[in-house]
Simulated assay, not measured.
Amino acid sequence: MVKVFDLNNYHQLCDLLAEQDPDLAGIMNRYGYPPFWSRPNTFESLVHIILEQQVSLASALAALNKLKAKIGEINPESFLQLNDEELKACYFSRQKTIYVRDLAQKIINGALSLSALALLPANDIRIQLKNIKGIGDWTVDIYLAFTLHHCDIFPIGDLAVVNAVKSLKKLPKDAKKEDLLEISNIWKPYRTLAVMLLWHFYLEERKVKI
């Protein structure tokens, strides 16, 4: 059975990690609990994650809001009615237009069911989602963590997480992914909760520096 977290056990699991790792405890002591970041299991949420690929969160949200202003509810059918120029006006790049169209078409033709995904193990979800153009491991990891709330996800492709680990554990800037993954093993089977704390640390530290 897939281990998931929710609002009922979120703080409890953060406390458990803080007991195991003094560095994570330090984040909690300084900044408190991380927000309960969560998104519904919808087409819109996956579109949002695709938009966040390799751009700032603010840019992705601007594109999502522009799309929402254009079509109202963001669903596969409405999205596929937009032409290239209309999507460009919503800040969609050519590549992301291709990606989201492929996602929309697969949902409409029944090749992908988001409700069915929620019942599957992480590896099976990864296989299905990576059949969509433009969806790789980072997108799947964010979906598993934010939307389905799987407990043990570590998005090694996420720059904020990588930089937070390096800073927190005082690693060199050129530390290898293998070193980061080895450190993440101490947080199993609740690495997603550690990631929430790491994002919290990263965002709060940036506020301090600004």
Score class of each variant (00 low, 15 high):
Asp6Tyr: 08
Leu7Ile: 12
His11Gly: 07
Gln12Ile: 08
Leu13Val: 10
Asp15Cys: 04
Gln20Gly: 13
Pro22Ala: 14
Pro22Leu: 15
Gly26Ala: 15
Gly32Cys: 14
Ser38Lys: 13
Arg39Met: 15
Asn41His: 14
Asn41Leu: 15
Thr42Cys: 07
Phe43Asp: 03
Leu46Glu: 03
Ile49Ala: 01
Gln54Trp: 12
Ser56Lys: 06
Leu57Gln: 15
Ala58His: 07
Ala60Cys: 11
Ala63Trp: 00
Lys70Glu: 14
Gly72Gln: 13
Glu73Gln: 01
Ser78Pro: 08
Leu80Asn: 12
Lys88Tyr: 13
Ala89Gly: 00
Tyr91Thr: 08
Arg94Gln: 08
Lys96Gly: 07
Tyr99Ala: 08
Asp102Pro: 02
Gln105Trp: 00
Gly110Glu: 04
Gly110Tyr: 09
Leu117Glu: 04
Ala118Asn: 02
Ala122Lys: 08
Arg126Pro: 11
Leu129Tyr: 01
Lys130Gln: 13
Lys133Met: 14
Trp138His: 06
Asp141Ser: 11
Leu144Gln: 05
Ala145Phe: 12
Phe146Arg: 05
Leu148Cys: 12
Asp152Lys: 04
Asp152Gln: 07
Phe154Gln: 00
Pro155Ala: 11
Ala164Gly: 03
Ser167Val: 13
Leu168Val: 04
Lys173Arg: 06
Lys176Phe: 09
Asp179Lys: 09
Asp179Asn: 13
Tyr190Arg: 02
Arg191Thr: 01
Phe201Asn: 09
Leu203Lys: 05
Leu203Arg: 10
Glu204Met: 15
Lys207Gly: 09
Lys207Pro: 13
Val208Trp: 11
